[in-house]
Structures are given as structure tokens and as C-alpha cells.
Design a protein around this nucleic acid. Structure first.
Lengths: 213, 213
DNA sequence: CCAGCGATATTTGTATACAATATCGCTGTT
DNA sequence: AACAGCGATATTGTATACAAATATCGCTGG
């Protein structure tokens, strides 16, 4: 997937996640091509990928609609993410090298600094938190796992979760990251798995509490 | 994905899984278009999907190669499949309806019959085994889970595993299916999860024993 | 004989044209 | 007024043409 396709993918995905293209609204290739400033061909490739990732669904005969994620869907996404990311953490604990461990510590130091103040820097938290989880996933050294997780980690979902977190919860999140680093340094896969499972499931409950309906 | 795209997908996938296109061999769009009797456009769509499912990988600049699955890759695939399919079984136990339970029993009755003889009918076993697992996955009622599992269940891998099984192991497999049906009928998610986990992991070890290198 | 380089050829990426199919609205009939 | 049938329109699916990127191979110079 090269230039135009990737831009189309990012653009359409952003339309969906920002809410500009609300659930159930139709996505026509030509309109998207206009918006993205490319032809239909790369738009189609982007749509096929979004379809595989269940961001869009096919309605009665072939028309594409923005998918509508129910409360149950979101719960299932969090559960799958908890399973897969915990598995990634366990693998990472067994495989991570010293240099990556240093990166992880540095990353979490930035998170700790961002949330240590009375008025936490949520923007930095979001960026570094994402990076932290990416490092873990990458250290798991399983492209298949990484691909599955990529379609499961939604920044807007994380954002809503973080918005619900107060300073205390953000700090606890950073603390859990620290414990995960300890588990990795100790090469303790079970420990890492348990910490990550709790980490994600707590996020799920915070998200649920923040979500009406 | 309509007619030509789907045929291209099935055709190329079959080329890869049959070994006609061995690991590492290059896949050029035009050649595949000739083989499939369609133009490059549907071939490209098929390749994008195969790429997402990790059947093919991108080499140095943009050329596509048939992926080479290492022993570790296969182990990771089995582990992921065990996790996800066990999760599917747990969900299925909570959601399955009476009619589907009847289908499941009928399916496993055919499996039991096929493997009950001294000379087991492996072909029937393979067809009905696949159907059995599909029913469970479908009863889990999670399109996301179903999509993830679809890319993980390789018929050639299952075939090699079954080929390694003797009559006793095939019969045990059928028995495990029966236990899974019991767990579902009892609405016992933990039981279903445990049975499915063991079921897949045993298959993995049989496969490993059958695989040189 | 080998390294570096450039022309050629191959291959992928993107746009566009065309075909097939479904949707929607209109008209005419009952 | 309601509905069937039909035609216009919109949308997707496929093929092809062209552009850009990349590899291949032969040439030249050392």
C-alpha cells in the first residue's frame, strides 16, 4: 500500500473515527475519492482494508456503510484486546532485549512526568501511552499478533478512557506500566500477562462508566 | 469482493497452500492475472487480502513473495488459535440456542461414525470437523472473532494433523467434541474454554510431531 | 576480470474508461 | 389513488492505459 492508498486509508478512517461519517452513513467510492484527492482505485484498496477491520460493513447489495459498534461490540473488542495484548506482554517478557527495556523505561518516565502534576498533560499521556504499548507489541516479535492488535486499538476509545481517568487513575496506569517493565526485566511471562490483563480490563471499566447507553 | 476478486483470492491462496507457489517465490500481478483469467485489478484486491492475512509478504521495495512460515510462526498460530477458539467456545456456551445444539450433535455424530471404524474415513472427518468448529465460531456471535479465526485456520495444517492421528486419536477428538457439546448444553463457559484449549493444543503437538525440521 | 554506470525491461501504483447491476422516480393503466 | 413496469441515474466491478519506481543486463573504463 503506497502513497495514495495510505493517505486514503488514513483519511477515511479519520472520517469514521472523528464522527464526521457517523455509523450507518453510506460511503461511496467517488465521493471519498474527491475528498481524498485521489482516484477510486486507491480508495477501493483503503475500503477493502477497512472492511476487513470491520470499520465498514456491506449493506444490502454491495453498498458500504460505516459500521455501528454496539456496546457489546466494544466490550468484545476490549476483551479480545486484553487477551491478545496480555499474550503480547508475556511473549515480550521472554524476548525483550536490554536496549528495548531502556526505551520502555524512558517512555514510561515521560508518562509518569506527564501525569505526576496536579493538572495532568493528557495529550502527552496519550502519545506516550500508545508508544509504550507499541513497544511491548513489537517486542513480542509476532507480526500476526501485531496485525491483529492494530485493528483493535482505537485511539478515540483510548482518548475517551483517558478523559474519564482522573489524576489518580492516570498515575496508577503509569504505575502499572512500571510493574510491567519489572515483569519483563525479570523475564516473568505470567506476571507480565497478569499485569497487562488488569491494565486493559480496568481501562474497559473506566470506558464503560464513561459511556452512556 | 465480488466474483473475479473472490476467484482470484481462492486461486492464489490455493497456489500457495498447495505448494505450487513455494515459500519465497515471487508473485507478479500480471502472471497471476493470466493464471486466474482476470485482469490485474481483482488480482490486486486478492493480494491485499492475502497480505493482511500474512500469506504473502513484501520484499525489498514492493515486490510480493510467498511467505515462509517458520516452526515458530506455526507454533504462534496454534497458540493464537487456541486462545481465540477457546474464547469462541466460552461465548458459544453462553449463547448457543437449542437448534444449533442439535446441528452440533448431528455434526459430531457424523464425525463419530466416520472415525469409529478400524479404517477411519479421514476425508469425512476433515469436512465435518471443519463444520463443527465453524458452528462453534458462529455461535460465539462475534464477527470480529470469526474474522480473526478465519485467517488462522489452515486446512493443509489441519490435514497434516489429522494424517498424523491414528484411529484412537481421531476417536478422542470426537469425544472431546462431545464434551464440548455437554459444556455448551450446560451453559458452562469455563468448561467449554478448557476443553477447546486442550483440543487445539493436542492438535498442535500432533502436528509438531508430524513436522520435520 | 571486476566495478560502476546507464539504457532497457519489468513491475507496481494510479487514473480512467467501460460494463454490469442495483436504485429510484416516473408514467400509464386499472 | 395504487401499483406495475420501465427508464434514467447512481454505484460498484473489471479492464486497460499510462506513469513512476525498481531491477536487470550489458557496456565501458580501469
Amino acid at each position: 500500500m503506497s502513497n495514495a492508498s495510505q493517505r486514503a486509508y488514513a483519511e477515511i478512517r479519520s472520517l469514521i473515527l472523528s464522527g464526521d461519517a457517523p455509523p450507518g452513513s453510506p460511503l461511496t467510492e467517488e465521493a471519498l475519492a474527491d475528498i481524498c484527492g485521489v482516484s477510486r482505485t486507491p480508495v477501493r484498496e483503503a475500503l477493502r482494508r477497512l472492511e476487513a477491520e470491520l470499520y465498514v460493513v456491506r449493506s444490502d447489495s454491495q453498498r458500504l456503510l460505516v459500521a455501528d459498534w454496539s456496546r457489546d461490540d466494544l466490550g468484545e473488542m476490549f476483551t479480545l484486546r486484553a487477551m491478545l495484548e496480555a499474550h503480547a506482554a508475556a511473549r515480550a517478557a521472554l524476548r525483550i532485549d536490554a536496549g528495548t527495556l531502556v526505551d520502555l523505561r524512558a517512555c514510561n518516565a515521560r508518562i509518569t512526568a506527564a501525569v505526576g502534576q496536579a493538572e495532568p498533560d493528557v495529550a502527552t499521556f496519550l502519545v506516550e501511552n500508545r508508544r509504550f504499548h507499541e513497544i511491548i507489541t513489537s517486542a513480542a516479535a509476532s507480526p500476526r499478533l501485531a496485525a491483529m492488535l492494530a485493528a483493535l486499538v482505537e485511539q478515540p476509545v483510548v482518548r475517551r478512557t483517558a478523559a474519564r481517568y482522573g489524576q489518580a487513575e492516570l498515575a496508577r496506569s503509569a504505575h502499572e506500566h512500571g510493574e510491567l517493565i519489572q515483569a519483563c526485566a525479570a523475564r516473568d511471562a505470567d506476571w507480565a500477562r497478569a499485569v497487562m490483563t488488569g491494565h486493559i480490563r480496568r481501562a474497559f471499566h473506566a470506558f464503560s462508566a464513561a459511556t452512556p447507553g
